[in-house]
Write a protein that binds this DNA or RNA. Structure first.
Lengths: 212, 212
DNA sequence: TAGATTGTTAATCGATTAACAATC
DNA sequence: TAGATTGTTAATCGATTAACAATC
């Protein structure tokens, strides 16, 4: 008989986890050893109860009355929960401004992500950025297979997005993170997440999401 | 006596609006004149009822039984609702890879956002990108005042983030969109929104948010 | 007219908040 | 010990879904 797994994290809770991790890492740098839910809640503009509920979902050790939670333990638990301790290889398709910025960004290491290469249709872009190769699109499938890349990051212009997306799917990629701000159609079984920086910026700017 | 304003949009609903707009614009390109809630729902993996409820919040004209909603009208209503018809001036602080990509991106026009200039501490970055000036940080306040910039986009490295943030606040900016993936402290009255691309990418990659 | 699709009212579902006993 | 902070159970709140009469 299967053991009860208990509460599973809601999507809302999952989205708060990176914020906890970021905060706790900052606290760790400052030398904090223990931290209470109410302190975290204050810093992150959440309620203490929400924080405690969330931490209960990921914490391997219970918090201690009067002290709170071990900062170090919590960091480790959160990283494990968020999968930052596993390694995933990712490729970037589209070596324009945004694609190149992603290649240059070094912070992905902390998130268990290796951005291994980029691809572009334009011969002018072929070469390397920040020591990472930029290949022609024709080599996408070969490299994805060889490096077992699981995640594709789409940063091509809108007009080229569907074609580039198809190429990724054909290469065997089953998880696509699209920054191309256009609707894409993918076959069953391929996961896609749209991140529309411009739209979210605009929503924020117009004050609609001020409270978030 | 004040007239009842009716239901106001939930945050969840607001976040779906850009997706409707994107879809409707694509349909408009294809020549669609009317579209029903169930068609939209299918395309966007939502329920038809959710779509109808959401559209009721923004639509100035009711949908017609048997036909659905006017694509053109809905696009206009959504753009108005999302504030894309107003103009807001924005500045970028940090002219590294990501900052430069934002300067080069032309899609902001559609969202009512004018990215007018960038700022950087490094003299090497001063100049222009895509016809937009990159100024030294010392000129931030002057330009923000002159151009009435309301939104600041923060794209500096983590270590420089708080200092750059302070400079923005000092320059009179009251809405900061931070891509710096670090916790910032701002005075009361300054709105801040964190967008951690790396964290959201990692969460997606680890399969935690697959269903979104 | 007949039927598809709307808008609305009620029911369900899920997440947050409140209350409180347990405990270091 | 006394008290702050935890984890848990119950209540509230908000959003989604279901049901259905209205209507082009």
């Amino acid at each position: 008989m299967e053991k009860e797994t208990g509460d599973s994290a809601s999507k809302a809770a999952i989205m708060r986890m990176p914020a906890y991790l970021r905060y706790l890492k900052a606290e760790f740098e400052k030398g904090s050893v223990f931290v209470s839910s109410s302190v975290i809640a204050n810093a992150l503009s959440l309620s203490a109860i929400t924080v405690r509920k969330d931490l209960a979902l990921v914490s391997s050790l219970p918090g201690k009355p009067r002290m709170g939670f071990s900062v170090q333990q919590l960091i480790s638990d959160l990283e494990k929960f968020l999968g930052y301790k596993k390694r995933t290889n990712a490729v970037v398709v589209g070596a324009g401004g945004l694609g190149r910025a992603i290649l240059r960004y070094e912070g992905f290491e902390n998130y268990g992500l290796n951005v291994i290469a980029a691809f572009d249709i334009s011969p002018a872009q072929i070469g390397a950025v920040a020591g990472k190769p930029v290949y022609p699109m024709a080599r996408l499938k070969e490299i994805v297979l060889r490096e077992d890349a699981r995640l594709g990051i789409l940063t091509v212009p809108r007009a080229a997005a569907q074609e580039a997306c198809n190429a990724m799917v054909d290469a065997g990629i089953r998880a696509i993170y699209s920054l191309a701000s256009t609707q894409l159609s993918v076959p069953e079984g391929v996961h896609i997440k749209y991140e529309d920086l411009a739209a979210s910026l605009a929503a924020f700017s117009s004050g609609l999401l001020v409270s978030e």
